[in-house]
């Protein structure tokens, strides 16, 4: 794997991006976007960022793809947000955008050498956390506050999604995926895949401490398995008002907050872990966060409550 592979990826990514932007059919654009997400995952692998590649494939391609397919199927004719631009305006926009790209390219070619890096600073205290994967250490030890705020953003977005449903269905269930009976192939997959998905998610979760992987990738996989069973109609989407669901959503951030506040008691400050217990505490936070992330991701894709069936 060297430059020919990078060149091929570059061409494919840019062609797919161009296809998504120019193709006439909405559905074709969404399918293009899923392919685009998977291509990007390959690009991240080429950049030796396997953690990011897994996240991009799972969330960028998978979760966003399913969400957009559901939405594209529901959308009727939308009033255009702006007038169809004329030939002149298109050329002008093309020139401006090409200018932006070229300016960025000039910056990429002018990047300083040797590049500034925090790799050394990230590796140095790694032993104190008991972790082997520096990316996990950044996410949950050095920059734990970012991850904490991220889960809050996830919950805020979910509240936003829920609040877009009709008022009279607040606390009810998201709309069923299909009006009729789903195909037998889908039902079969929804019965066969989840056991494998759960095992792989458990592996990704556990290995994330030392190797590429972690709670996000594992949680997305679990959310996907849950959505699959919902799509096939094997389980109903949960009532958005159910206390168990609300509890699962709040569990992760609460555990994170309690451990974080305890850090002040240990004298180190908010979200600091005592050295001896760093790894168990990080695993505890990750496990709690995983519960909340699975629920938040799956329900964001499922959409707001639109029926009151008990």
């Amino acid at each position: 794997m060297s430059e020919p592979f990078a060149l091929l990826l570059t061409v494919l990514v840019l062609l797919t991006a161009g296809w998504i932007v120019t193709v006439r059919e909405r559905r074709a654009a969404v399918l293009g976007f899923i392919a685009y997400g998977l291509l990007l995952a390959l690009v991240w692998i080429r950049l030796a960022a396997v953690d990011v590649a897994l996240t991009e494939a799972a969330i960028g391609g998978g979760a966003t793809g399913v969400l957009l397919l559901r939405v594209a199927a529901r959308l009727g004719d939308l009033r255009p947000m702006s007038a169809q631009p004329g030939r002149m305006l298109k050329w002008l926009a093309g020139l401006v955008c090409a200018g932006v790209s070229l300016a960025l390219m000039a910056l990429v070619l002018a990047l300083p050498d040797p590049a500034p890096s925090l790799a050394g600073a990230a590796m140095e205290p790694l032993a104190r956390t008991g972790l082997g994967n520096p990316v996990t250490a950044v996410l949950l030890a050095y920059r734990a506050l970012d991850t904490f705020l991220e889960i809050i953003v996830l919950l805020l977005a979910l509240i936003g999604v829920w609040s877009l449903g009709p008022d009279r269905f607040w606390g009810g269930r998201p709309a069923a995926w299909y009006e009729g009976t789903p195909s037998s192939a889908l039902t079969f997959l929804a019965r066969v895949l989840p056991p494998f998905g759960i095992v792989i998610a458990g592996y990704l979760f556990w290995i994330g401490a030392d190797e590429p992987g972690g709670k996000f990738q594992a949680s997305t996989l679990l959310a996907a398995m849950w959505l699959l069973t919902m799509m096939a109609g094997l389980v109903a989407a949960p009532r958005t008002g159910s206390p168990a669901l609300r509890g699962a959503l709040a569990f992760g951030p609460l555990v994170f907050l309690v451990v974080g506040l305890a850090g002040i008691g240990w004298g180190e400050g908010f979200l600091a872990y005592p050295d001896r217990f760093a790894k168990p505490l990080i695993l505890l936070i990750e496990a709690a966060l995983a519960v909340s992330i699975v629920a938040a991701l799956a329900l964001m894709v499922a959409g707001p409550a639109e029926r009151n069936t008990p």
Binding site: T10, A17, R26, L89, A93, S101, L104, M105, V108
Partner: peptide, 24 residues
């Protein structure tokens, strides 16, 4: 090379954002 690819992606995305009237 992939950095240049990223610059192209930014340009293509910006173009679609300006030119396509459809919200999706």
């Amino acid at each position: 090379l992939l950095g240049l690819c990223a610059c192209g992606m930014v340009g293509i995305g910006l173009y679609g954002l300006i030119v396509r009237p459809d919200a999706l």
